[in-house]
Simulated assay, not measured.
Amino acid sequence: MAEETVVERTWRGILERHPGARLGEPAVIEAAYAEPRLRVLFPFPSHGALTFHRNTQDPWSNDLPFIVGDVESCTVYAPLGAPQRVLGQSLTPQEAAALVVAHLPPDCGPAFDGTWPPPENSLD
């Protein structure tokens, strides 16, 4: 059996609400995890937001859309500094996760182990 990756271990800790894991809104976490393209990215829940990163260590990529919200209503934001900051609002967690996937760059994922920016040629 293959060893669990940092990304897999992080998702598991968040989903199972392990002590020491960064915790977020369970409905949003579960909806994001259900999306295969998001499941391979590094999840980072903080301050009511769920961000996704192409790498596993700070500094983060911060170049992907993210979700803010709860089981009742979510907003999807474009990456910091991007035009049209709000991509969608008043969404279910599932709709929000699908909208993030729809706005991922084609070359996105899986996350690599390390800091941003990526090592030369790691995204080729």
Rank of each mutant, 00 (worst) to 15 (best):
43 P>A: 08
68 V>W: 02
113 D>G: 00
3 E>Y: 06
49 A>N: 14
76 V>F: 12
47 H>Y: 15
42 F>H: 14
98 A>T: 12
101 V>T: 13
11 W>F: 03
100 V>K: 06
60 W>F: 13
57 Q>W: 11
20 G>P: 06
68 V>R: 07
85 R>V: 07
63 D>N: 13
64 L>S: 00
92 T>Q: 14
29 I>P: 01
13 G>K: 12
47 H>I: 14
41 L>K: 05
87 L>K: 13
76 V>E: 13
49 A>D: 09
27 A>W: 11
36 P>G: 12
15 L>E: 09
77 Y>M: 11
32 A>G: 12
7 V>G: 03
107 D>R: 07
20 G>N: 04
62 N>P: 02
30 E>D: 13
99 L>A: 01
19 P>M: 00
72 E>S: 10
34 A>F: 11
23 L>K: 04
104 L>E: 00
94 Q>A: 13
106 P>R: 10
62 N>L: 11
104 L>C: 03
67 I>W: 02
61 S>Q: 08
67 I>Q: 00
48 G>R: 10
108 C>A: 04
23 L>D: 02
81 G>H: 11
39 R>P: 10
40 V>I: 15
88 G>D: 07
103 H>P: 14
23 L>M: 04
95 E>M: 00
109 G>N: 10
123 L>T: 11
2 A>Q: 12
14 I>L: 10
31 A>S: 06
75 T>P: 14
55 N>G: 08
69 G>P: 07
69 G>W: 01
38 L>T: 07
110 P>E: 03
108 C>N: 01
85 R>G: 02
89 Q>A: 08
106 P>A: 13
116 W>E: 07
85 R>A: 06
85 R>W: 08
93 P>L: 06
38 L>P: 11
114 G>D: 03
26 P>F: 00
37 R>D: 14
112 F>A: 02
72 E>N: 11
45 P>F: 03
74 C>L: 05
31 A>R: 05
30 E>Y: 01
29 I>F: 03
99 L>T: 04
58 D>A: 14
30 E>N: 10
70 D>R: 13
87 L>F: 10
100 V>H: 04
80 L>F: 12
16 E>H: 02
53 H>F: 08
9 R>P: 00
123 L>I: 10
100 V>C: 08
2 A>L: 06
120 E>A: 07
60 W>S: 02
59 P>Q: 01
52 F>M: 13
30 E>H: 10
100 V>I: 08
5 T>I: 07
96 A>V: 14
108 C>E: 01
96 A>T: 15
39 R>M: 08
66 F>S: 14
9 R>M: 03
104 L>A: 05
83 P>C: 02
37 R>N: 11
110 P>I: 05
46 S>A: 12
75 T>I: 15
81 G>A: 07
29 I>Q: 10
53 H>E: 13
50 L>W: 09
121 N>M: 08
69 G>I: 00
92 T>Y: 14
4 E>A: 06
110 P>S: 04
17 R>I: 03
73 S>M: 03
94 Q>G: 03
110 P>M: 05
